[in-house]
Design a protein around this nucleic acid. Structure first.
Lengths: 192, 192
DNA sequence: AGGCGAAAAGTCAGTGACTGACAATAGGAG
DNA sequence: CTCCTATTGTCAGTCACTGACTTTTCGCCT
């Protein structure tokens, strides 16, 4: 009994999230998820490459947005500034997706295999940024270094953002990149 | 027919490497590896949590060495300097293990699932460094940022080291951390 | 309206990673 | 030589994932 078209994908994700909440990720079978979505296990694996992927459906606009933002940065800008700007441009998208990403994060954080996948996704984005930087003429190895360091700052900024949403992501990013830069200078009070 | 003791582990690793070279990682079965090592598949999974782990047997001294190096750094040193020093202290260990790690890297690089695991291992080391920094009084989020940025520099340095082994790892590390610091300043020629 | 073609779903059978439970055995301590 | 224990073998089973093939549905064209 075939169904409409793409909302099968959404139903699978919803069913998965429900079942992961009721039982847990490991105790939930791909077949069970498929069944709740009114679909066969085989269909599950036609929509998602593997069971984990159901929790990692990123916004289709994310990668193009990052690439474009890096490409659009002004000539002569420092790599880190370019990447900071690219991250800042994601703010609306991140806000819009928040209700979807929020519940998934809990599930992911509770499972080593899912954490592993999350890191792989982050690494993939890092590679994307490095490539975008290279296309601006930045030497490959240097681009990789900048992308990784920037991702570290981004991670720091998003964490701060969750703790204090009163400030914009852009503000948190500014502080994160500034903090990162200061990390190499020998002036720091150990206490607090 | 039970065997000696721990060299079963080494035999399994050796057998795996051979079979991965002959066929490839995916086409090699855990049972095949076990058979070549003169052991049962069940025994394979008693020595390694999963099939991938056979390629990720890190030096048992690695983690203690990093933790100790961070703890032993002089008071008041900047986080990045502390971490750079910790990495530099690994040079002898990395040199000694090179013959073992070299062949594995090829296999790992050819397989997405293995790359994923490699990233997870790196993330685990990053977390270790962050914790070690925290124990020196560095604020948790800041420690995480420093650890990630430092790992980026370490990765850059080891890549450079492989390209130019005439310089010491310490020298490459110095340059990497310096480059990282300079990445935030707006002076860079796009050409070359 | 009726029928057609491709996209999407179902069915079936199979492989391989991994696990729990239990029996068998080697190696060392006494 | 015997007992004790760590390690391995054996067996049966679950589940993620895949290939090959059939069936259904949807959108379109006549």
């Amino acid at each position: 009994m075939p169904r409409n078209r793409d909302d099968v994908r959404a139903r699978l994700q919803q069913a998965g999230l429900e079942l992961f909440a009721e039982h847990c990720y490991d105790a939930t079978t791909a077949a069970e998820i498929a069944a709740r979505a009114g679909v066969t296990e085989r269909t599950f694996f036609r929509h998602f490459a593997d069971k984990r992927e159901i929790l990692f459906d990123e916004d289709p606009g994310l990668r193009p947005a990052l690439t474009a933002a890096v490409a659009a940065a002004p000539q002569g800008a420092a790599p880190m500034a370019i990447l900071a700007g690219a991250f800042a441009s994601l703010e609306p998208m991140l806000l819009a997706n928040r209700p979807f990403t929020e519940p998934r994060i809990q599930v992911i954080a509770a499972n080593p295999a899912l954490i592993e996948r999350a890191e792989a996704k982050a690494a993939s984005l890092t590679a994307l940024l490095a490539t975008a930087l290279q296309q601006r003429g930045v030497e490959p190895k240097l681009a990789g270094l900048a992308a990784r360091a920037a991702m570290a700052a981004f991670s720091y900024a998003t964490t701060s953002w969750r703790e204090d949403p009163s400030l914009s992501l852009a503000a948190h990013l500014d502080r994160a990149f500034q903090t990162l830069h200061g990390l190499s200078s020998p002036n720091l009070e150990p206490g607090s």
